[in-house]
Design a protein around this nucleic acid. Sequence first.
DNA 1: ATCTAGGGTGAATGCGCTTTCAGAAGAGGG
DNA 2: CCCTCTTCTGAAAGCGCATTCACCCTAGAT
Lengths: 347, 347
Amino acid sequence: MYDVAERSGVSIATVSRVYRTPDSVRAQTRERVLEAARQLGYVPSGNARGLASRTTGVLGLCFPDYSDPDTENEAAATDEDDDHAFMLYSDQIIRGMERAARRHGYALLIAASLKGGPESLVANVAGRVDGFAVLAGTVPTADLEVISRRLPVVMVAGRRGIDHLDHIVVANTDGQRTVTRHLIEDHGLRRLAFIGGEAASPDAEARFAGFQQACREAGLPMPDAPTMRATMMTQAEGFRVAEALLDRGGERPQAMLFANDQMAVGGLHALERRGLGVPEDIAVTGFDGIPLGRLVRPTLTTVRQPMRRLGEEAVELLVQRLADRDRDPVSLMLPVSLARRASCGCG
Amino acid sequence: MYDVAERSGVSIATVSRVYRTPDSVRAQTRERVLEAARQLGYVPSGNARGLASRTTGVLGLCFPDYSDPDTENEAAATDEDDDHAFMLYSDQIIRGMERAARRHGYALLIAASLKGGPESLVANVAGRVDGFAVLAGTVPTADLEVISRRLPVVMVAGRRGIDHLDHIVVANTDGQRTVTRHLIEDHGLRRLAFIGGEAASPDAEARFAGFQQACREAGLPMPDAPTMRATMMTQAEGFRVAEALLDRGGERPQAMLFANDQMAVGGLHALERRGLGVPEDIAVTGFDGIPLGRLVRPTLTTVRQPMRRLGEEAVELLVQRLADRDRDPVSLMLPVSLARRASCGCG
DNA sequence: ATCTAGGGTGAATGCGCTTTCAGAAGAGGG
DNA sequence: CCCTCTTCTGAAAGCGCATTCACCCTAGAT
């Protein structure tokens, strides 16, 4: 910048003005400066600008590493390997955030949490953005508490954790209740098994609560805990848990309700392997509405959540809070919708 | 940071060391500092750090706005609206880059080009990263020329443009030649129509070149230009162009080869609307291998490109150049593979 | 008891830019 | 021709951190 100033015979203040407030500089001067910048290959330093102006024009997103290790390592260019090319939860949120961020003139900084201590992740992201969104379970609450005192943070999904944060979730309980009632009322099923996640997963627990509600409302026995719990909510886990469920004896359930689609797809595979027909022998449902659910056979009945909108709304919340730091914390709940497909007996 | 230093009774230099080189500080001192930081809610400024250390730990990606405006505005929660939830070209590249970046300890800054002058985009991204990837056609060559003198840039797809850039493409020509030969040799088709993009699109032109080669090799008349040209390579354009092609009279082609999948899907819709059977009446092929291609009926025969790997390799190139600025420019060509599905008569 | 290494710490400088606050240069008005 | 009012431009003070360099202290060597 100093070079540009010198070469065009002005001060660095003027060079700065040329980029920040072009109209405040006489056209002729501006041209001289731009020409010099071009010749010198000048690229303004975003860091310096950020430092001086205390604002970066960047929003951040931290998400956990959702990748399904099994699908991840499949090699070869068969159609199979397209599967993991389908969007996961985080991908859609990224997309939504990117879109909304762009609309507001922000760029998006994304970082998945690395196993090696969230220290670096948080430091790298938090220090570089004007505000950011965190997918539940990515950043330890303690860290978040510290950071959220300095800049806007919106918690996406999960539990808010810190009550001065903005928060945005989908209607997990409501959605699971709806799909459960559908199985009970429309398909007449009564022996239902719910495959949950870890007790620490607020979303999975909220879904289970919906399952409980539906059972109670239908006069079915209301379980205290999920029939089975998966530890990872991946396909492999879904497969494993479904098999375990079948193996444990007793009367076979008429339906398996999985806490998310990835597990449900794994469950579908397990049932196929056991020679059980879906939905004739047993119905299956998921939750999320990932695209893969429409590709598997039978197609997967699920609860579709507006993942992209989740990302968009997250950005909106950030932008709003950036405009008014003192407004009350907002908590948004986005509606979900039932996707009736083949795996429950519809379609 | 000054506050933290004061509160813990050390100098700012020591605070800095606690975060950058923890081992160089006595454990007891370190704890005092960290505790003070915690109490004060200290978040290190990435900007300041970047300024002082002249490195950001962030890689960037600039991509054009690929969104398909038509699918974009479809409302309602029908299954239809899942379609645009499928990954596009850019999404997969983002995914690949994110993964690879994380492996190398970088975060990823993404920004789609906004219509309002690339000025801001480039300024926002280029000044904040250690290096970045550009999808062809996103940033004007002139700007790129300037920027690439200051930091590593890798051009993804398209034409390299500036010869000192690293560059990475897929085997467009080769892939289109393969799929064309497949139609000619395996399905015995001879009247082929190629729907290209704008003459300014290097990828589309490279694919057309492959089409030409295959025609020549098979002894078919070799066209000088694509049978039709689309202006946008979106579904809507594919639909429009396919109809135009049918309407222009003359003998109907036995196959339509689209320069990408999105157009091909649009073409499929047009043919269905006209009551033409695919592949009986006319075969259709695309290029890219987007997931949507497996969902449409008939499933779309296409050339699958390793989009995620494209992103991964881009990061590798950046990392390598960051390590050795003076090495010769690299130009990589990634192989593609033929996906034979129903729309050509296979599967 | 004196000397020598080191490890640990602080003072000071600069990274490249934004942003007041004044001052200089024109433009009209009296 | 002088004075006030606009425009434009420059000087200078940071923004929050990394990093040299010098310094001090302590432990082991002599």
